[in-house]
């Protein structure tokens, strides 16, 4: 159980003189439910961007299952089982959910370069996509343009899309952000029902969700790891309280 699947060593990222990520060394165990919390502007999303190759780090390395993936492009990391969702939906507005998910599945299966057979010919891909979309409550809208879907549905597609790549490590960047209250429970139940063999690193502001979901918590402040521990340790830590109270006050 103590096998480390995702690790960073001395990871830093500068924007000019500003240290967005400052010497972060993080270890995530296989199957963990690890939450990453911190006040606004603490560099949580930057850290996720560094982990997934959206940004190159200024210093430090990222290891996935013991291998250095620091120099790999995003798509290669996804092929190795590391993927993510975005805090602000990053979807293909003109695609239907069905097309979106089918594309992710063909890429996972390594037939995405195929240019001589129509997508409609991949019956099993479409089947898999349809059942995935159904699991995420998107079956009824799978033929609609993504751009016209309600925000909650788009949010679910955002997560479903990450799932289509069958990740072993999944980074969720505020999955419930911006979802209206009446659609929120759908997103939350999907998040809490994630398969146990998938390692999850969750960024979240909602402390109730974090405490109910996570087994381990890292607190990020000003780009650096401020505290790390179990839920009980973190919720009892007066310094963490101070950081959050300070922010709320």
């Amino acid at each position: 159980m103590s096998e480390i699947v995702l690790e960073t060593r001395g990871l830093s990222r500068r924007f000019g003189a500003f240290m967005a990520t400052n010497d972060v060394s993080l270890k995530v165990e296989r199957g963990a439910r690890h939450a990453l919390i911190g006040p606004n502007g603490a560099g949580k999303t930057t850290l996720i961007n560094l982990l997934t190759g959206v940004l190159p780090p200024s210093e430090g390395q990222v290891y996935l299952e013991g291998e250095d993936i620091t120099g790999l492009a995003s798509f290669r990391r996804v092929k190795r089982g590391l993927t993510r969702t975005f805090q602000i939906n990053q979807l293909f507005p003109e695609f239907t959910p069905l097309e979106t998910v089918c594309l992710a599945i063909t890429e996972r299966q390594g037939v995405g370069h195929s240019l001589w057979s129509t997508m409609a010919g991949y019956g099993r891909v479409i089947e898999e996509a349809a059942s995935l979309l159904e699991r995420f409550g998107l079956a009824s809208v799978m033929g609609e343009r993504t751009s016209i879907l309600p925000y909650g549905k788009q949010r679910l597609l955002e997560i479903a899309l990450a799932f289509a790549s069958r990740p072993r490590v999944l980074l969720l960047d505020e999955p419930a952000a911006g979802v209206p209250e009446d659609e929120r429970h759908e997103v939350l139940s999907i998040v809490s029902d994630l398969p146990k063999d998938v390692t999850v690193l969750l960024i979240e502001h909602d402390m109730d969700l974090v405490f109910s979901f996570a087994s381990r918590i890292s607190v990020l402040v000003a780009g650096a790891v401020f505290a790390e521990g179990t839920v009980a340790e973190i919720s009892a830590d007066p310094r963490v309280k101070a950081v959050y109270l300070g922010e709320n006050a």
Binding site: T52, G53, F75, R84, E94, L103, E107, L115, M119, L161
Partner: peptide, 26 residues
């Protein structure tokens, strides 16, 4: 034929949102 293949779809994905396309292994 190319346009409606997985390849064609992946091209449109790159155009539409290159960052996300990378995140589904395109």
């Amino acid at each position: 034929r190319i346009a409606f293949s997985p390849f064609g779809l992946s091209l449109k994905a790159i155009k539409s949102n290159a960052m996300r396309a990378g995140m589904i292994a395109v």
